[in-house]
Computed example of a mutant assay.
Amino acid sequence: MQMRKNLNRALRLQAFSILCLLGLAACGGSDDDGQMGGNEAAIVVGCVVDEASFSSAIEAVGTAYADEQTVLTAPVTERIERLYFNDGERVSEGAVIAQLSRGEESADLAAIEARARQAQQQLDRLEELSDRGFATRASLEEQIAARDAARADASAIRSRIGDRVIRAPFSGVLGLRTISEGAIVNAGSPIATLSDISRIKLDFTVPEQFLSSIEEGQPIEATAAAYPSELFRGQIDTIDPVVDPLSRSVTVRAVLPNPERRLRPGMLLSVDVVSEERRSLAVPETALIAQGDQQFVFRIDENGIARRTAIETGLRQDGQVEVLGGLQAGDRIVADGTVKVRDDSPVSANFPEETRRSGGGGGVGSGLEASGP
């Protein structure tokens, strides 16, 4: 009998415990959306939409080329009689670089010039005889032709002798000498490399989507690994009219002044194409919500309610995103804490910049603090 009483008491205690647990669960129930405390405002950091400076900087890597460069070669197979330059020497336009042997051509020229003089003397005698009526017109014309032929032969020999004197076609710097006097060179053999590096041509490629951001005369800045702390400035000279169909990029040529000859052909340079700076509306990157190819932010209305708003974005720079549409200056948005916010829900936003301007503390404001001005 006593055992039955103890069992009944234990069952009553167990049933009472279950009822208490059910009551506690009912007291802490959720709202219709299944969210605990559905009417509570999410605590976030806000900001006021304002303007910021943006500039389109296109980064690329380019190769330096001489303003003018050529390899001076031997026009004929001949022996080098004399060289008139040293390694790395600067020369002016028209300066003699090398002279090939021309002994045979000089002898031929002397013989032809003697024949031309003789033909001229014979012509003079025939002209005297013709004036007195003792020479025919045919003989006179034949002697004129002989004289002109001798003169043409002499001009040809002089041209061949001129080919054996190699001159600089423009002012520049000669490369390292790899040949010596007395060597026999074949036609087309290199004798010296001449480079004009008073200016440097810098070729680089940019993707086709940046074509609208570049134009001739646009300034650029370049840096070289050899001079990491030095900035070289120039401007775009030419834009290739053809886009590479494989890489979908276009070649751009810029020109950089190089009065101290610090830049050399073949160097690799990092390039920044500087575009005109502009001021546009901006929001922090942390405020963006990406959905597919669209961007959204939470705009806080005058009642402290967060409204999801689609915006059109532009450049990204220094943690800021350019806003091209969807917001106006002075709009208040959720800058940080978007993961805690639902569309059309209340928020309690703290605006650090307004707090600093007012000299107040950095506490979190209420829903009213997020209202409009």
Rank of each mutant, 00 (worst) to 15 (best):
S130H: 06
P169T: 02
G175S: 15
S130A: 09
G182L: 06
Q118R: 12
A135R: 06
D148E: 11
G162E: 13
Q120L: 05
F134Y: 15
T193P: 02
D163K: 10
D196W: 00
D131Y: 15
R137F: 07
R177P: 02
R125K: 04
L123S: 06
R117L: 04
A156Q: 15
Q118G: 13
G188D: 06
A145P: 06
A138P: 01
G172T: 00
L194H: 01
A154C: 01
R167P: 00
R117E: 04
I161L: 06
E141C: 06
S139W: 11
G182D: 03
Q118S: 15
G182I: 01
V173K: 15
S159C: 06
S171G: 15
R158I: 09
A154V: 00
A150F: 03
S139T: 06
A116I: 13
R132Q: 10
R137P: 07
V173N: 14
F134M: 13
G175R: 08
D153F: 02
R177L: 05
R167N: 07
S139P: 01
S189Q: 11
R147A: 13
F134I: 09
I191T: 09
S195Y: 12
R132L: 15
T136W: 04
S159D: 13
R160T: 01
F170Q: 08
A183F: 02
S180G: 08
A146Q: 12
L174A: 14
L194N: 05
E181C: 01
I166V: 06
A119G: 08
S180K: 14
R117C: 07
V173W: 04
A135K: 04
A156R: 15
V173T: 14
A116E: 10
A187L: 06
A146L: 12
A145E: 05
L129N: 04
I144D: 04
R160N: 07
I157Q: 13
I179A: 00
L194W: 00
S189R: 07
G175E: 08
S180R: 05
E127D: 11
I184H: 11
E127K: 07
D131N: 13
I161P: 01
R132W: 03
R115H: 09
